[in-house]
């Protein structure tokens, strides 16, 4: 992370930076999806529909490591770190508050990187099914991924029987985040 940025960047520049960080992150989710076993076996239309519905939620999981609950700072993917107070002044308060709350809940589960990756795959294929042409294929893919996630977690922590259900409870949290915040506005400078 870079040192906290202060007065040398204008509000507009910070907002542009925040907006721009989503572009490479979305592209990474598309590449991630292509690597999920079975995802490219879906029709291209269904792959696109799941990505459009689920990418925001995958990004919420991906971004939760950028939130420092102790310091109350957020690190953007370009390396800039800002205190929450600065970002609130730009009007990002409600989205960031929700992301802080979500990242604390998910962080408390202590997932390993491979568990987090498999959880992100489950999040993506559990996204809204409006517009999906082959529901059965998507459900089969989802069931397989959930089984794999359960197996990985219970094998690694056989005594923590509450962990997997707690993890699945994050799915409705993500849907709520999506419904409340995906209509937030971004601004990209046109040179």
């Amino acid at each position: 992370a870079c040192p906290v940025s202060g007065a040398e960047r204008t509000s507009q520049e910070i907002w542009e930076s925040f907006s721009q960080c989503f572009t490479p992150a979305v592209k990474e989710v598309v590449e991630f999806a292509k690597g999920i076993p079975g995802f490219q076996g879906l029709s291209q239309q269904d792959q696109v529909m799941l990505l459009k519905s689920g990418t925001f939620q995958v990004l919420m999981v991906r971004f939760c490591t950028l939130f420092n609950a102790g310091e109350r700072t957020v690190t953007f993917l370009n390396g800039q770190t800002y205190p929450l107070s600065t970002l609130r002044a730009l009007g990002m308060g409600s989205l960031l508050d929700a992301m802080f709350e979500f990242s604390e809940k998910l962080g408390s589960l202590g997932l390993e990187p491979d568990e987090m990756a498999l959880f992100m795959a489950v999040v993506l294929v559990s996204a809204d099914r409006s517009g999906i042409s082959d529901m059965w294929a998507v459900e089969q893919l989802q069931e397989g991924l959930i089984r794999a996630l359960r197996s990985l977690i219970t094998r690694r922590r056989p005594d923590d029987t509450a962990l997997f259900p707690k993890l699945l409870l994050r799915l409705p949290d993500l849907r709520t985040l999506n419904n409340l915040h995906s209509d937030k506005l971004l601004a990209f400078r046109i040179d």
Binding site: V30, L51, I190
Partner: peptide, 25 residues
């Protein structure tokens, strides 16, 4: 003065995904 393209996060995500799949067809 700077000009900005403004869109929702959902629309931006949708746009990137559509571009990516069109490029790879």
């Amino acid at each position: 003065p700077k000009t900005h393209r403004v869109m929702t996060l959902a629309d931006h995500i949708s746009h990137i995904i559509t571009q990516d799949f069109a490029r790879n067809q």
